[in-house]
Each structure stands twice: as C-alpha cells, then as structure tokens.
Design a protein around this nucleic acid. Structure first.
Length: 459
DNA sequence: AAAAAAT
C-alpha cells in the first residue's frame, strides 16, 4: 500500500503543514482512519501512541475545522486526554499541523493557573484539549459553552477507565450535543470499553492496527535477578547503567512515586544526571523535567507510570524497570518508550525474589521469552554499596562484602556519620560532599561524562 | 498494589 498524504483527502493547508514537518507517507492507522474521519463517521481506533495515532485524528480534524464555520466563542471540537503531559503533547501536534490555520487552541489541564486558560476561552477557542477534571471545573465556573462541539475525541480510553475517569466522560458527553462526531481511541478493547463505545458512538467504523503487545523487534529485552531490598536494587541499577552498552539516555520506571523520588535522589547523589517525574510533583517541575529530558539536557529520567504511555520521546536508548510492572500491559507500554521509529533500544527489568510470577504474565502477553542476564561483576547481590552502608551494612555485617568490592564506597563515614547518629532513622541521611558522592563513583567504575551531573549542579 | 486527575 503506497498511499501518500496527498491522496487522503486532507485540505491543502494541512497537507502542506505535514509536508513541512517532513512526512510524505501516512502510517497504517493514519491511512485507515483519516478518510473515515473526513466523512464524519464515528470511529473506534484500536492503536497505541507510537503508531501515529495522534495525527490520525488531528489532521482530519483540522481539515473539518477549515470547512466549518467559526462560531463566536464556541469551541467546535473537544479532545480528552488522561494525563496532562499527553494533553500538552496533542496540543503541540495541533500547533504544528495547524500552523497554516487561524485557529485558537486552548489547553485545559490541571496544575497550572486558570488565568491563561480563561484568556484563551474568552477570546473564543475553536479547539479544546483537556484533562477531564479541569475541563469540568471550567464548565462549572460557567466559562465554557459546549453546545457548539461537533467533534469529540476520547483518547486512551482504556487508561481513562483505569483511572476512574469514566463518570467524568459520561458527564461531559451529556453536556455535548447528541448529534456529533465521536472518535474513540483505545489500546485495548476489554468488555467494559466495548460497552462504552456502544453508549458514546453511533454506527462507528472500527480501525485496528497491529497490537504492539508483540513488543518491537528493535528492543533488546533483558531480565536481571536482584536482591529484595531497595538498597540492593539501587546498587544493581547503578551497575547496570554503568555497564550498559551504547547508553545515550534512559528512563527508569518505578511502581511507586515514593521510589521515583528515592531512586532519582540516590542516582543524583552518585553523580548521575537524573531527574524525577511523577504525578505528585508540581506541574512546573513535571513540564520542566520532561522538557529537559526531551531536549537531551537531562540524561536519566526516573518516572512513575505517568510516563509509561503515549509520551513521545523520540530517542530513548534504554529503559530500566526498577520494579517489575505488576500489570503485564504496563511492561509493554514502558519498554515501548525505547526502540521507536526503527531505532534500536534496550529494556532491562530488575526482578526481585518472588516476582517471577509477574515475568510469567509478561512473557505470556508478549508471547516470547525474555533472556536472563548475568549481573556485571560489580553487582554482587549481597553487597549493598556505600550509600546504604549505615542501614544495610550494619545488619548483615561487613563480611558480606566480597571479592574486589571497593572498600572506598563502604568506608564508614568519618565525621558526618557521627553527626548523623543523633538523627532519627532515615533511609537517606543528608550527606553533602563526602566520599559517597562524586568521589566514590570513580572507584566503582566509569560513567560516561554525559551521564554525570553538570558540574554547576553538584552539591 | 499503584498511578493518574480538580482544589
């Protein structure tokens, strides 16, 4: 099938913007979905991000908006996204492909001030891109008139369901004109989702592209047995990062927000250029960290599953699962952040004792085995590194240190440790610049310079 | 079991 964008029936302005962005051939989902959307059909799209799903609704929506008539202060289209970052990403797509249009696009997400959003709404926005909570908030404040919306997009529906957004979605649907076009996207189609499509859509066309549960062949996947304690896992993680081949940048996924923060701080203290991303952080830091990672100025992103789905970060060379995802599908989403656009990628998953049942579920889902790796020499599972010495070291005794394990990193803290003695027990006693910091990683092995924290940022 | 999202 050699379809070109120019053959899909999109308007000239859109086609030109697509060409300017450097694309000539639509992806599978785009080629299949765009003609139906242009015919104003309701659509069920079964696809994940990374398949070009976003453009498959953004491009034809732009064309339809172009043909329709602007209505004073009445949005004509509404796109609902489960996370703020995804909403922001769709917003960027609208700006990119809509650069030849004169459309006002309002991004309505939480965590940021109402002021700018209100201004946009007052000027009259043609397109709303929103997370459900903030959108309803605006509505309840009487700032939104939804009776002019004739295209609704529900994106990542399965995730919306997971997140308990369905009541909000139902509420929003009840505020929209019943005669409208609805585009419904989901990566999976469990029965609950199917029921929703019957409620929200009229005579929909179904378009499906290859499920990516068959994880991309371009991703090398590896499992690694690690110790049970967080300290042991962090030590193993550092070893893996140091030993990784061709590591350009990495996302490290943790199951809990708490651990995201801990792992990021721990890596930073060991001299790595790492930043955290999870939903309890203020939106400014979230945006800032993600931007830095996207632009390449931050090498390592430690994240919760907020970053697992849909986020488009073009060139991630490595994904580390600090925790095994307990939902097998999340594994697919997480490692799908690497090996994109035909690039190669590596996904390394740490498996603690008792977690092999999750591995079984994953291999069953992706229908392939994942190789077990040998720990690199430095990763002796029973020897926690210096950072954790005050806690782990005492309990298990120094003798657990074996082989050529570097004593430097485990050396009792000469003075600071004594100062810590009176403090309440904390996992991370604050340490400024002792030999647990930048000095110690030299003895533990080489870290490429770009993975290190820029000099100005060191403590 | 946890994460995400309105405050």
């Amino acid at each position: 099938m050699t379809v070109e964008f120019s053959e899909l029936g999109l308007g000239d302005k859109v086609t030109e913007a697509v060409a300017a962005a450097g694309y000539t051939k639509p992806t599978d989902i785009q080629a299949q979905a765009i003609p139906h959307v242009l015919e104003k059909k309701d659509l069920i799209g079964i696809a994940q991000t990374g398949t070009g799903k976003t453009a498959s609704f953004v491009l034809p929506m732009l064309s339809l908006l172009e043909k329709g008539r602007a209505r004073a202060r009445m949005p004509r289209t509404l796109i609902l996204e489960p996370t703020r970052e995804l909403a922001a990403q769709v917003h960027e797509n609208f700006e990119k492909y809509g650069k030849n249009h004169r459309l006002t696009v309002a991004l309505l997400i939480g965590g940021v001030s109402f002021e700018d959003q209100n201004k946009k709404l007052d000027r009259g926005a043609d397109v709303l891109i929103a997370t459900p909570g903030r959108m309803l908030d605006h509505f309840e404040r009487g700032r939104l008139l939804l009776t002019g919306v004739d295209i609704l997009v529900i994106d990542e529906a399965d995730r919306m369901l997971d997140m308990g957004f369905i009541p909000d979605i139902e509420r929003i649907c009840s505020l929209l004109p019943p005669r409208r076009q609805t585009l419904f996207f989901s990566a999976t189609m469990p029965p609950e989702i199917q029921k929703l499509t019957q409620r929200f859509l009229r005579d929909p066309v179904k378009v499906e592209v290859a499920r990516q549960n068959s994880t991309a062949d371009t991703i090398e996947q590896v499992l690694l047995k690690v110790g049970k304690t967080p300290a042991e896992k962090r030590a193993a993680l550092r070893d893996q990062i140091r030993a990784a081949k061709d590591l350009k940048n990495a996302i490290i996924f943790c199951n809990r927000k708490r651990d995201v923060a801990t792992v990021a701080r721990s890596l930073e203290r060991h001299g790595f250029d790492a930043g955290a991303l999870h939903g309890d952080m203020d939106q400014k830091s979230r945006t800032e960290t993600l931007d830095r990672f996207r632009s390449g100025s931050l090498a390592i992103l430690v994240a919760s599953d907020v970053a697992a789905r849909g986020l488009d970060i073009p060139a991630v060379s490595h994904v580390f699962n600090f925790d095994v995802p307990t939902h097998a599908e999340d594994y697919v989403h997480r490692i799908g952040r690497t090996g994109r656009a035909g690039r190669s990628g590596t996904a390394i998953t740490l498996i603690a004792p008792g977690e092999t049942k999750y591995v079984d579920a994953i291999t069953k889902l992706i229908q392939r085995d994942i190789a077990w790796a040998d720990a690199p020499a430095a990763a002796s599972p029973s020897a926690p590194a210096g950072e954790e010495a005050p806690e782990g070291g005492r309990k298990r005794g120094r003798r657990t240190r074996n082989r050529d394990e570097k004593p430097a990193a485990e050396k009792p803290q000469p003075k600071k440790a004594a100062e810590q003695a009176g403090r309440p027990h904390r996992e991370h006693p604050r340490r400024a610049n002792n030999d647990d910091g930048p000095a110690s990683f030299k003895s533990e092995g080489h870290i490429p310079a770009f993975l290190l924290r820029p000099a100005g940022k060191r403590a």
